[in-house]
């Protein structure tokens, strides 16, 4: 009997070894974050123009060469990482605040508020996010702050919907009713009993979305709507490299590669988080 019981118990108890893709995701994201943090500490100035050293190939002085103004490409890439990741962090923060605030209120209040908020969400959900973000930058004006605001405003509706759905399901739980009859205030019940369950789902959604938002930031900057040129940013770098695609193709390759690797890293990490935290997928691990 005990042998059988043990056998049955092992798979659930055994700690799953992280998959190789998870480790790759962690490594990519970790490297990008380290690079972004290290960027200001490095001796190279990403904005120092050196017209004597234009369009140089990789070498001892400039490891990845220089761009058309003689600026160090590696320094620009790393500073670009901190711009992209910083922007995405701010966007995700804004989206979570909006999603939890609006979705939470909608789910808790229900009734007319809920119906109106959900129709507004539907409106946001019908327009492709990039088009909506471009439209908003057009309305708000260019600049990085407005780009971040526009991306947050074009993505919050998914989060609000998810939060609302989770709140609707969690607020029916007996332990939520128990907390309410024990006299706990509504905000406290929300923070203590509903929010933790919601956050787990939001983290998964956000981690899967980060790659997508990095593309938005780079895309809008490429179009000249976001970061203004002297500041190093991957989209800006790709735009500037267009003219030299035949003479110095690596200028375009590096920032493209950075975007690719970062997006891939976050997507792998998001997939891993989803598989870990979604109970319905628990069986297929390893």
């Amino acid at each position: 009997m005990s042998a059988l019981a043990e056998e049955a118990a092992t798979p659930a108890i055994r700690r799953r070894r992280p998959r190789r893709t998870t480790l790759a995701g962690l490594a990519l994201v970790g490297t990008m974050i380290l690079g972004a943090l290290a960027a200001p500490l490095l001796p190279w100035d990403p904005e120092a123009v050196d017209l004597m050293a234009r369009l140089e190939g990789p070498g001892a002085a400039h490891w990845l060469g220089t761009d058309h103004l003689g600026r160090d490409v590696l320094a620009r890439l790393l500073h670009g990482a901190s711009v992209s990741l910083g922007a995405v962090a701010a966007i995700v923060g804004l989206i979570l605040a909006l999603g939890i605030g609006v979705g939470g209120l909608s789910g808790l209040l229900g009734g007319r508020t809920d119906r109106i908020v959900m129709r507004v969400c539907d409106g946001f959900l019908t327009v492709p996010t990039f088009v909506l973000a471009m439209f908003m930058v057009g309305a708000l004006g260019t600049g990085m702050a407005n780009v971040m605001l526009a991306i947050a405003l074009s993505h919050w509706a998914w989060y609000a919907r998810l939060v609302r759905g989770m709140v609707l399901s969690l607020r029916e739980r007996d332990y939520v009713a128990a907390a309410i009859v024990s006299g706990a205030s509504r905000p406290r019940v929300f923070v203590e009993h509903i929010l933790p369950g919601v956050l787990v789902q939001l983290v998964v959604l956000a981690s899967l979305d980060i790659g997508h938002m990095i593309l938005h930031v780079a895309g809008l900057s490429f179009l000249g709507l976001g970061v203004t040129p002297p500041t190093p940013e991957w989209g800006v770098m790709i735009n500037e490299a267009r003219e030299f695609i035949w003479t110095q193709p690596t200028l375009m390759l590096w920032p493209g590669l950075m975007i690719l690797l970062t997006v891939m890293g976050f997507n792998l990490l998001g997939d891993a988080l989803r598989d870990r935290l979604d109970p319905t997928l628990a069986g297929d691990g390893c």
């Binding site: 007996d174 907390a179 006299g183 706990a184 203590e192």
Partner: peptide, 28 residues
């Protein structure tokens, strides 16, 4: 609720938050 009246519910299994300890429930 909680100040003059306490309620004992019928379903002890589901009336506790599964991720919180008894101490956390007492604190609440």
């Amino acid at each position: 609720p909680g100040r003059l009246v306490a309620t004992v519910m019928q379903n002890p299994r589901s009336a506790f938050n599964p991720v919180l300890t008894m101490r956390a429930h007492a604190r609440e």
